[in-house]
Amino acid sequence: MDYAATRDEALARVADAQDLGAVEALRVELLGKSGSISGLLKTLGGMSPEERQALGPQIHALRESVSQALGEAKDQLESAALQAQLAHETVDLSLPACEALRGTVHPVSQVMDELAEIFADLGFAVATGPEIEDDWHNFTALNIPESHPARAMHDTFYFPDQMAQVGQKMLLRTHTSPVQIRTMLDAVKTNPGGAPIRIIAPGRVYRSDSDATHTPMFHQVEGLVIDKGIHLGHLKWTLETFLKAFFEREDIVLRLRPSYFPFTEPSIEVDAGFAIINGKRVLGGSGDAPGHGWMELLGSGMVNRKVIEAGGFDPDEWQGFAFGVGVDRLAMLKYGMDDLRAFFDGDVRWLQHYGFSAHDVPTLSGGVGVRP
């Protein structure tokens, strides 16, 4: 058999191939499992050693030549096809790229950061405590003993009795006020004589309630000041300064009303003046002005003597004030939301609308320039 002639014929056929389909058909015909050149390779097994030595190199050379020619033809045709595609298709590089989906900063997280920023300017530290709390820290130390009717004010999630610790029932904390007790006790341990305390305690709290303005889990921030010579004037100034900085308005007007909380005495409810603008309540101005009203905003008061004692301080030497407000409520008022339940639904559309881009988080323009 004339292997050189077979090679020349195969190479000529490869050179005449016009497209990738024709090149692939030739590869199968010549080098496939049943191809003609593959058949020649199979005959080597039946040859004598002398014939195999003489013909083997020629058959292998034939296969290598055809294989190389097919590869080069394929590369050339693919390159030509790409060039033709590039010549007919264009990309406008001036068009903006598709925006990738990004997460957002939740309004509650944003408000938490704003609160920490404001109160840091006022000299307050941020304190935290456990969300699974014991009955003593959550109620008893805050002047709410087991028989106290004020316990009916809280719809509490209790854990089974077998989870009790040292005789204390365990529960999901109903407010962040237990952090006040823990902070005072820690301060007394650090300094037996006690020490001035200025803290805020933001965090999650739990109550069995659910509607448009209540959820089983929500967020509170409580403030506590323990020092000598503290009076209601310090509390009013702190709240006014805080609210003016948070809402970024200088016309915030507060009204203090007598109230009752077991852990403060005297206790006061704080109302803020508002006006109706475009159908929404906007804080600012006196609630007694025409077209205005008063909105209940938070509870506060002077720390009860029994609470100061439970925290390890001498109430004849130390006084203080405390206040608490819902973080979710502050977010709703500042950023125009009307249903608290949406905060926890995890709806991406709501988060994209009310959330804040990590690159465009609002900052407080004024801040607080004066310390109490």
Rank of each mutant, 00 (worst) to 15 (best):
P160E: 14
G167P: 04
T183D: 06
P202C: 01
L95I: 10
R102I: 08
L115G: 00
F124A: 04
Q165F: 15
R173T: 06
Q83E: 14
L171Y: 09
A141L: 07
T140R: 09
T176W: 03
V91T: 10
A80L: 11
D161V: 10
H154E: 08
L115N: 14
V108F: 14
A125V: 04
A141G: 15
K189L: 11
A100Y: 14
E146M: 07
R182A: 15
V105I: 12
L185Y: 11
M184A: 02
I118Y: 01
V179W: 00
L115Q: 03
F157W: 13
D134A: 05
H175L: 06
A84H: 07
L142I: 01
T174V: 15
E131L: 12
E78D: 10
H148F: 09
L95F: 13
I199A: 04
P145V: 03
V188K: 08
E89V: 15
L82S: 09
P178L: 09
Q85G: 06
P192N: 00
A127M: 08
S109Y: 00
F119V: 00
V108W: 08
Q168D: 06
H137W: 15
T128D: 15
L82H: 03
D121A: 11
L171Q: 05
M184T: 05
D113N: 13
S94Y: 10
T140Y: 06
A201V: 08
L171N: 02
P145D: 12
P145Y: 08
L171S: 07
I197W: 10
D186C: 06
L95C: 10
C98W: 15
V105G: 05
H106W: 06
G123I: 02
A201I: 07
G129W: 14
P160I: 08
G129R: 07
F124L: 06
R173C: 03
I132G: 02
D186A: 15
D134G: 05
I144H: 02
D121W: 00
T104D: 11
G194Y: 02
F157T: 02
I181L: 12
M153I: 05
P178D: 03
Q168L: 12
D186N: 12
E114G: 01
F139R: 05
S109C: 11
L95S: 09
P130W: 10
P145H: 03
Q165R: 14
P202T: 01
P96W: 13
A100E: 15
A152M: 13
G129I: 09
D161Q: 13
H88L: 13
P160H: 10
L115R: 01
A116R: 15
I181Q: 09
E131T: 09
A201C: 07
L171C: 10
F124V: 03
L93E: 08
V91P: 01
Q110I: 00
L101E: 15
P160R: 01
